[in-house]
C-alpha cells in the first residue's frame, strides 16, 4: 500500500533531482533578466574617474552620489522631462481606460443591435493602417499635434486589442441578468456602467491600465515624431537625446553660454546617464508588485475570443 502511494506521488510531482535541475535553469534565467539593471544601478553610484579607469563594474570601487546630485542641481531639464512623463502617463492612462471601457461596454452587450458594426469598425484598425508617414502628416497638419502635450497622449488613447480584451472581460464576468435587474430598478445606462459594470471589472481594467501605463511611461516614439520643444520632452526621449550629447541636459536651463562649457567639462557624464536610467525605471519597478497581483488573474480572462 505504501509503495503504491509513493508511486502515485511520483506521478503527481517531478522527482527531487529534476526539481533541482529545473530550479537551476530558472534561477539562471531570472538572473539574466535582473543583472543588467543591477549593473546600471551600480554604475550610477560609481565615481566618474573610477569608471574611466576600470569601466562599468558590478561592484563600485569608489562609491559616489555625485551623478544624482549633479542631475538634480544642474539638470532642470531632467526634472522637467520627469514632470512631463508623469503628467502624460497619469492623464493618458486614466483617459484611455475610460474611453476604451466606454467603447468596450456597448459592444459587449448582446442586446445592442449595432455591436457587430462597431466591433468591426474597431477590429479593422488592427488589420489595416495608413502607415507611419500618412499618420505623421495628418497628426502634424490636421490634428496639430506638433509640440503639444496632446501629441504624447492622443495617439495611444484607443488600442483595438485591449478594447477586445475588455469587451471579453465584460461579457464573461458581468451577467446579463444583473444589468436587466438594474434596469428594472430604474437605473439608466450610465448608472449601470459606472456603478455596476466598472466596479465588477476591476481586475480586467487593472490589467489594461498596466499596459497603458507602461506604454505612456516608456514612450519615446511619439516624442520623436511630434516634440521639438525642450519643455515638452519626456524622460525616455531625453535619454535618447543624451546618448549622443549631454548638451541636451542644458537646453532648458537659464545658464546657457559661458557657464555651460564649464558645467559640461565637470559633468559625470557616464554615471549621470545611468542615473537618469535608474530614475526613469524607479517608479515602474515600484509599482510592479501592485500590478503583478492582478496580472495572472486579468490575463486568464483576457482570452481574445468571446
Amino acid at each position: 500500500m505504501r509503495k503504491e502511494q509513493a508511486d502515485f506521488n511520483r506521478l503527481s510531482a517531478v522527482s527531487g533531482k529534476t526539481n533541482a535541475v529545473l530550479n537551476i535553469i530558472l534561477l539562471g534565467y531570472a538572473l539574466i533578466c535582473i543583472l543588467p539593471l543591477i549593473l546600471v544601478v551600480a554604475v550610477s553610484f560609481t565615481d566618474e574617474t573610477t569608471l574611466a579607469i576600470h569601466g562599468y563594474r558590478f561592484f563600485p570601487e569608489k562609491f559616489s552620489l555625485y551623478a544624482y546630485e549633479f542631475i538634480f542641481s544642474t539638470g532642470s531639464q531632467v526634472v522637467s522631462a520627469y514632470g512631463i512623463t508623469i503628467l502624460v502617463t497619469v492623464v493618458g492612462t486614466l483617459l484611455s481606460i475610460l474611453i476604451m471601457a466606454l467603447y468596450a461596454y456597448p459592444i459587449s452587450r448582446s442586446d445592442f443591435k449595432y455591436k457587430n458594426f462597431f466591433t468591426f469598425f474597431l477590429i479593422f484598425t488592427m488589420l489595416f493602417n495608413g502607415g507611419m508617414v500618412s499618420t505623421y502628416l495628418i497628426g502634424v497638419n490636421i490634428l496639430k499635434l506638433k509640440d503639444s502635450m496632446w501629441g504624447l497622449i492622443f495617439p495611444y488613447l484607443m488600442n483595438a486589442f485591449w478594447v477586445i480584451i475588455l469587451r471579453t472581460f465584460f461579457k464573461t464576468n458581468i451577467p446579463d441578468s444583473l444589468i436587466e435587474a438594474a434596469r428594472i430598478d430604474g437605473a439608466g445606462e450610465f448608472t449601470i456602467f459606472f456603478r455596476i459594470v466598472m466596479p465588477l471589472a476591476v481586475p480586467g481594467l487593472a490589467t489594461i491600465a498596466l499596459f497603458a501605463t507602461l506604454q505612456y511611461w516608456n514612450d519615446w516614439f511619439l516624442a520623436a515624431l511630434y516634440i521639438n520643444d525642450p519643455k515638452l520632452v519626456p524622460l525616455p526621449y531625453l535619454l535618447y537625446q543624451v546618448q549622443t550629447s549631454m548638451q541636451y541636459l542644458l537646453q532648458n536651463s537659464s545658464n546657457i553660454g559661458g557657464m555651460s562649457g564649464d558645467i559640461l567639462s565637470k559633468m559625470p557624464s557616464e554615471a549621470a546617464r545611468m542615473a537618469m536610467v535608474v530614475i526613469g525605471v524607479g517608479p515602474i519597478v515600484l509599482t510592479f508588485p501592485f500590478f503583478q497581483r492582478y496580472l495572472v488573474k486579468g490575463l486568464t480572462v483576457g482570452a481574445i475570443k468571446g
Binding site: 531570472a30 574611466a52 569601466g55 525616455p236 515602474i284 510592479f288
Partner: peptide, 30 residues
C-alpha cells in the same frame, strides 16, 4: 522567477539599449 522574468517587459527599449550598452560599450562595457 516569474517576477524576475517579467521585469524586462516593463522596461522601455531606450532603457534596454542602455542596459545593453553597459555590457558592450567599446571602451567601458563590462
Amino acid at each position: 522567477y516569474q517576477g524576475s522574468m517579467f521585469l524586462p517587459y516593463f522596461l522601455s527599449w531606450i532603457v534596454a539599449s542602455y542596459l545593453l550598452y553597459a555590457f558592450i560599450s567599446p571602451d567601458k562595457g563590462f
